[in-house]
Simulated scan of single mutants.
Amino acid sequence: MSKRGSEFLYHWISDHLPDAPMVDPVLMVIEMAVDAKRAAEAQGIPGQEIDEEIGQIYQFIMRDLR
């Protein structure tokens, strides 16, 4: 993933992590990863740039949830 892509994801995820308790953390992580990819594409960051590291996006979100 490019530096631009990873910086975007870091900031997007930090801004969108919920403060409320999670009912289903797995579903929330999947939804956040999809939403982050859409937001990146809207900012001109190609989807394939995000797809290359989609597993790491899930891991990144899960790490931030701890």
Score class of each variant (00 low, 15 high):
A42E: 14
I57P: 11
K37Y: 03
H16A: 01
G5D: 06
I13R: 04
D24A: 03
D15R: 05
P18S: 03
M28C: 09
Q43F: 02
K37H: 05
R4I: 02
L17F: 01
A40L: 01
F8H: 01
F60L: 14
S14F: 00
H16I: 02
R63N: 15
I30H: 14
K37A: 02
I30A: 12
L65T: 13
A20I: 04
I57W: 08
K3G: 10
G55C: 06
D51V: 00
A36L: 02
F60R: 15
W12R: 04
K37P: 06
F8P: 05
M1N: 11
I45A: 06
A42N: 12
E49I: 04
Y58L: 06
E41V: 06
A39C: 07
L65Q: 15
R38C: 05
G47H: 09
Q48L: 03
A33T: 13
H11I: 00
I57K: 05
A40F: 01
R66S: 09
G55R: 12
P46G: 04
S6Q: 10
E41N: 07
L65K: 13
M32P: 11
A42K: 07
A39R: 07
M1C: 08
E53L: 08
V26L: 06
M1R: 07
G47C: 03
V23F: 02
L9P: 13
E7G: 05
V29A: 07
K3P: 13
A33F: 07
Q56H: 14
D24E: 09
R4M: 00
F8Q: 01
I61Y: 11
A39K: 05
D24L: 01
E7L: 01
A20W: 06
H11W: 00
L9S: 07
W12G: 05
Y10A: 04
A20D: 13
E49A: 09
I57M: 05
M1F: 04
P21I: 00
G55H: 10
D35W: 05
Q43M: 03
D51H: 09
E49W: 08
I54T: 14
F60C: 11
R66K: 12
R63H: 13
E31Q: 12
M28Y: 14
R38V: 04
S6H: 06
G5H: 02
D51S: 11
P21H: 04
P18N: 00
H11Y: 05
K37N: 06
V23A: 07
I13D: 12
W12E: 01
M32F: 02
R38L: 05
M22I: 08
I57R: 02
I54H: 15
R4Y: 04
I61D: 15
D51K: 09
I57T: 12
G44P: 14
A39P: 15
M28R: 15
A20F: 03
E53N: 14
Q56L: 08
M28L: 07
Q43A: 07
G5C: 03
M32N: 08
L65W: 11
S2E: 10
S14D: 15
Q43I: 01
D64I: 03
F60W: 15
A20T: 12
A42C: 05
M22W: 10
A39W: 05
R63L: 08
E31S: 11
K37S: 03
H11L: 00
Q43P: 11
S2N: 12
E53V: 12
L27D: 15
D19Y: 04
P21W: 01
R38S: 07
S6F: 00
Y10D: 12
A33N: 12
W12F: 08
R66D: 14
M1H: 05
S14M: 03
V34F: 09
E7D: 10
